[in-house]
Design a binder for these strands. Structure first.
Length: 396
RNA sequence: GGGGGAGUUCCGGAGCGGUCAAACGGGGCGCCCUGUAAAGGCGCUGGCUCAGCCUUCGCAGGUUCGAAUCCUGCCUCCCCCA
């Protein structure tokens, strides 16, 4: 029996989802009239959460706002296995301390979206760290054939790529998480579909009511192509400064904008709008969300100043430089290395390519030393986005 | 247990005794263009006291005037047969 209110709730919650399985199950669950336990498993390898995570967290938040409980599982144990979705063959094994630290930052950041009062955080080592005879009892219930249904596995088999036994175990263990926390619903990206569904089998094997599952679209990174992820360097972190956030968002390809709008904002992209304007709005709204309206305005103003008009930002960092000897010459590669994290060789190349400016004028190729007086108080710029005001400290 | 193959610069992947800091592609970076988008053009992409020098081609030895390239041992990985 599902009352119409539950059906309405379900419709709202399913709005952003790609799939909800089994069909109609969520509406039934919502009709039970008790808070549902909604599970999300996270990997403690990436300590920062980014907009890709936000898509999922938003959905969880919607569940919380409807009165349900989120169970956040820190996969400290499964992290030792490595989910085959990331084709990364080997992951570095994290130490306990690293996992602690990552879990903590992740949690803190997740609470920028989630309601801590309706969130339960658990680590799967709590139940997965079991004696091997117990593990065997768990694993015995599943067949390899069942696991090979996963497309990733079958693809690798036909491509003659290796699959480790451990990887095969991953879905079983992460499915067991659902048993342990008695999940009613599990959420994940579309790439997690197999794992989510497999959780149902594991629950069933343990005499539990199988969860329903919800898959969500995957947000592309700032390159617009690959999924957003920290290791790809194409992410926008929720703790990025307003300037960084605004800048990164302005750099996404036009084609990706529609998805960013759909997955992260309450409004849709108006296809008739000028792309530049639409992108500004996207950037502005997201900065507002993770910082505030003033920060968004400031970030946009700075963006216009620095990148559109090519002017210098007001809040330049200061680089204090020592002049070299009584001649007062400053060795540019050394300065660039110290203040911009380049190697001196890189710095030389950059100079030769006209990528280094002093006071807006490109340093001529091959010119490695400049008189201190030409540099003091001037703005030293590398490429388009790195600059600092130089102060030459007394040459003695 | 048997047989075969591979480990190269951020990634993929050439090179198989000197002309190799190592082709080519991807990525990244710089300049031009522009809406800091995309596409495109040109260039760079080990380090340094930079017309030269130093350290790199899984690890350790060895052969040689000279090795990423040959030999020996070790480590790791993959494939096929059982």
């Amino acid at each position: 029996m599902t009352d119409s209110a539950a059906v309405g709730d379900a419709r709202r919650l399913l709005e952003g989802a790609i799939e909800a399985l089994p069909e109609g199950r969520l509406a039934e669950q919502l009709g039970l009239g008790r808070p549902l336990r909604v599970k999300l498993g996270i990997d403690p390898t990436a300590p920062d959460i980014h907009l890709g995570h936000v898509v999922v967290l938003d959905e969880l938040r919607a569940f919380q706002d409807a009165g349900h409980l989120v169970v956040l599982i820190v996969g400290d144990y499964t992290a030792r296995i490595g989910d085959p979705s990331g084709r990364s063959a080997e992951r570095p094994v994290l130490t306990e301390a690293e996992i602690d630290a990552n879990a903590k930052t992740f949690q803190d950041q997740a609470f920028r979206v989630l309601d801590p009062g309706r969130t339960e955080v658990r680590r799967n080592s709590e139940w997965l760290s079991m004696p091997s005879d117990e593990l065997f009892r768990l694993v015995r219930r599943f067949t390899v054939a069942r696991l090979l249904e996963r497309e990733e596995f079958s693809r690798r088999i036909s491509a003659a790529e290796p699959i480790s036994v451990l990887e095969l175990l991953y879905p079983v263990l992460q499915g067991y998480d659902s048993v342990a926390v008695e999940a009613d619903v599990e959420i994940g990206g579309t790439d997690q579909k197999f794992n989510l569904l497999f959780g149902r089998d594991v629950q069933e094997a343990f005499g539990e009511e199988p969860q329903s599952i919800l898959t969500l679209p995957i947000l592309p990174g700032t390159d617009g192509v690959r999924r957003m992820s920290k290791s790809q360097g194409n992410y926008v972190g929720v703790t990025d400064t307003p300037e960084e956030m605004f800048g990164k968002l302005m750099s996404i390809p036009d084609d990706a904008m529609e998805q960013y709008y759909r997955l992260l904002l309450p409004v849709r992209l108006d296809p008739k709008r000028h792309p530049g304007e639409a992108k500004r709005e996207l950037a502005r709204r997201l900065v507002e969300r993770f910082h505030d309206a003033d920060a968004a305005l400031a970030a946009e103003a700075r963006f216009d100043q620095v990148h559109v008009r090519g002017e210098l930002p007001d809040d330049l960092e200061e680089a204090v430089v020592e002049a070299d000897g009584p001649s007062g010459a400053v060795h540019l590669p050394a300065v660039l290395a110290e203040h911009f994290g380049l190697s001196r060789s890189e710095a030389r190349r950059l100079i030769d390519q006209g990528g280094v400016r002093i006071g807006g004028r490109a340093v001529e190729p091959g010119r490695l030393d400049v008189p201190a007086t030409d540099l003091d108080g001037e703005v030293l710029q590398v490429g388009k986005r790195r600059h600092a005001r130089v102060r030459v400290a007394g040459e003695g």
